[in-house]
Nucleic acid binder design. Structure first.
Length: 578
RNA sequence: CGGGAUGUAGCGCAGUUUGGUAGCGCACCUCGCUUGGGACGAGGGGGUCGCACGUUCGAAUCGUGUCAUCCCGACCA
């Protein structure tokens, strides 16, 4: 490809609406252009990258025994009503009407459609196991799209769905996919960590996420991991052992005492001269529009996803002052934040964290302003809630649940995930097969996603410097660029042309910068766009050498034109051999 | 959806306070000159100043409304 004809417009400055590095770089280097919020044009360079990621994904998925198909982007409401997700999915599901006022949605994921395909054509145990996948644009009407391709509304995703006749079969396919994913991301030049995670709106029991570890803002997930064993988990799912703490209060008997103006745990513990570990904290949440009380040892934080799961809600948030007031009034109390407690609250789900179990003689709010109950105990002064489970956010300094060594935290970009769905969709949608015993049974399903466009963006997050992108060779839009310093210099141009043609003949994807620009412009563009290799043909051609530069390391060498050509061919082959 | 901000040429911005016929840099076109890290000179093309209504002799500028975009929080590939 001639640089003069390559459809790309690099910018001198970063677009002002870009926040994270991958968005800045991809926009400035002319890979993407925003069409509207969270929706991007993938320009020729970007499309080449995406196709390369797709190719790797296809090769590994096919190699793992999956079969590719393509499902529609527009889906009918009825299918989503069958699974129960039409109401459950929320506003992220982009709904629209056709000309007959029939209600449709844009596919954010395809469990419903694939399940309908399966129940039509997958009738016998003999046809299983089977794994079907597609690569396609998805649309999720995100509350707040951001970070460019990392959280767009429209994005390219590979989604695979497996059908098995047994849990054992599903386990096997789950492992199979985990291994395929590990290979895929490695081939894309990304270091990923497979972490335990919450299964969220898609549902199911077990799930893992593949995280690109990054220390930038773009890593929206906190990942806790252990250096001594292989435990790692998303913070929304992580569990931990706690350091020993004093959880027994200093009071011998229960009594209500005045605690004026102690609205926070800090103020209360200072006023009473005690540690927060002997205070029972009561938080009011709104889960699916209904209030929920969460009890936890006061030095700990509630993890909202865990709480949401504990009460079986689809949506959760902390209550605002007005809602707390309303709850108090309904129960005949006059208290505010800081003095709330579980006693006397009727018809409200109460969830306690495991940490409350070992608390004794503790301090707790009793829904009276400026008063607390001290020396309280479960079973005597406070009823133990029916739901006692882990709703605690793991923190740095906690210990590994498996081996007891310290846990560490880091940021991660989720590029893929795998779920065990079980019969979550097959049962409600009556998607069944006939088993060997002649009985009809629902499929045991799994689903496996990879964000294609997010993976490409994550690669930029992981590989860049102040001058631009440093693409991993396997997913770079082109492998190499050949730059004649002056296109008017006949010798330089001739040698550059020869190198370029030899590269093409060897199957290297190369660009020749035939523009009549000053060298600085060409070098800046080459670095910004991120060609893995660069051959510069300049004055040193008089001594028979050209300059060979490796983008990832910045290393520069003077080689003969043939040596530089061979070097690129060797390096690219080596990189693609994985 | 709550809080904050911004909409002026493809990109980055000034002009708005104090109303008077729209500007700068980059990019683009032509010519000259230049050629190892985003040169220089001359000339040129491109904008209903987000949109609507209002105030005014006159609105990018003032008022009201509206839309869009971005940032901070709750969701997720």
């Amino acid at each position: 490809m001639k640089m003069s004809k390559l459809f790309v417009q690099t910018l001198r400055e970063f677009p002002s609406d870009a926040e994270v590095i991958s968005h800045k770089m991809l926009a400035r280097a002319g890979y993407i252009r925003k069409l509207t919020s969270g929706v991007y044009n993938f320009l020729p360079l970007m499309w080449r990258v995406l196709k390369k990621v797709e190719t790797i994904v296809r090769e590994e998925m096919d190699g793992a025994g999956a079969q590719e198909l393509l499902m529609p982007f527009v889906q009918p409401q009825e299918l989503w009503q069958e699974s129960g997700r039409w109401d459950a999915y929320g506003k992220e599901l982009m709904r629209l009407k056709d000309r007959h006022d029939r209600v449709m949605c844009l596919g954010p994921t395809h469990e419903e459609v694939i399940t309908s395909i399966a129940r039509d054509g997958l009738k016998s145990y003999k046809q299983m196991p089977v794994n079907l996948y597609q690569i396609q644009s998805k649309f999720r009407d995100e509350v707040r799209p951001r970070y460019g391709l990392l959280r767009g509304r429209e994005f390219i995703m590979k989604d695979a769905y497996s059908f098995d006749t047994s849990e054992e079969g599903l386990d096997k396919e789950y492992q199979n996919m985990a291994q395929a994913y590990t290979r895929i991301f490695k081939r894309c030049g990304l270091d990923t960590k497979m972490v335990q995670s919450d299964s969220g709106a898609i549902g199911g029991s077990v799930s893992h996420e593949f995280m690109v570890i990054t220390d930038t803002d773009a890593g929206e997930n906190d990942v806790f991991y252990c250096n001594s064993c292989d435990y790692s988990a998303n913070s929304n799912h992580a569990v931990s052992k706690l350091a020993p703490a004093n959880t027994v209060g200093k009071w011998a008997k229960a009594e209500v005492i005045d605690t004026p103006n102690t609205h926070s745990i800090e103020e209360l513990s200072a006023f009473l001269d005690i540690e927060p570990t002997v205070i029972l904290k009561t938080l009011v949440y709104i889960a699916d529009k209904k209030p929920v009380l969460a009890l936890i040892r006061a030095d700990k934080t509630v993890e909202e996803t865990k709480l949401m799961n504990a009460v079986g809600a689809m949506d959760i948030r902390i209550a605002v002052a007005g809602e707390i007031e309303e709850l108090m009034q309904q129960n005949g109390f006059d208290a505010e934040k800081g003095f709330i407690g579980p006693n006397g609250i009727k018809d409200v789900t109460i969830v306690a964290d495991e940490t409350v179990r070992e608390m004794k003689n503790f301090v707790v709010g009793i829904n009276q302003k400026d008063k607390h109950l001290v020396g309280a105990n479960f079973g005597i002064d406070i009823e133990m809630p029916e739901i006692v489970t882990d709703i605690r956010l793991v923190e740095q300094g906690d210990f590994c649940p498996e081996c007891g060594k310290p846990l560490f935290v880091t940021k991660g970009i989720e590029v893929g995930n795998i779920f065990k769905l079980g019969t979550k969709y097959s049962k409600p949608m009556n998607a069944v097969y006939t088993d060997v015993d002649g009985k009809t049974k629902p499929y045991i399903m799994g689903c496996y996603g990879i964000g294609i466009s997010r993976t490409a963006a994550a690669a930029v997050e992981a590989h860049n410097d102040e001058n631009g992108i440093k693409w991993p060779i396997a997913i770079a839009p082109y492998h190499a660029i050949v730059i004649p310093v002056s296109v008017k210099d006949v010798t330089q141009m001739k040698v550059a042309q020869e190198v370029y043609e030899k590269l093409l003949a060897a199957g290297i994807e190369a660009v020749i910068d035939d523009r009549d620009e000053r060298p600085g412009v060409k070098f800046k563009d080459a670095d910004l766009i991120g060609f893995p290799f660069r051959v510069t043909v300049g004055k040193t051609i008089a001594e028979g050498t050209v300059e060979f530069k490796t983008r990832s390391t910045g290393e520069m060498e003077n080689l003969t034109p043939d040596a530089a050509t061979e070097r690129i061919i060797t390096e690219v082959k080596k990189a693609l051999a994985k």
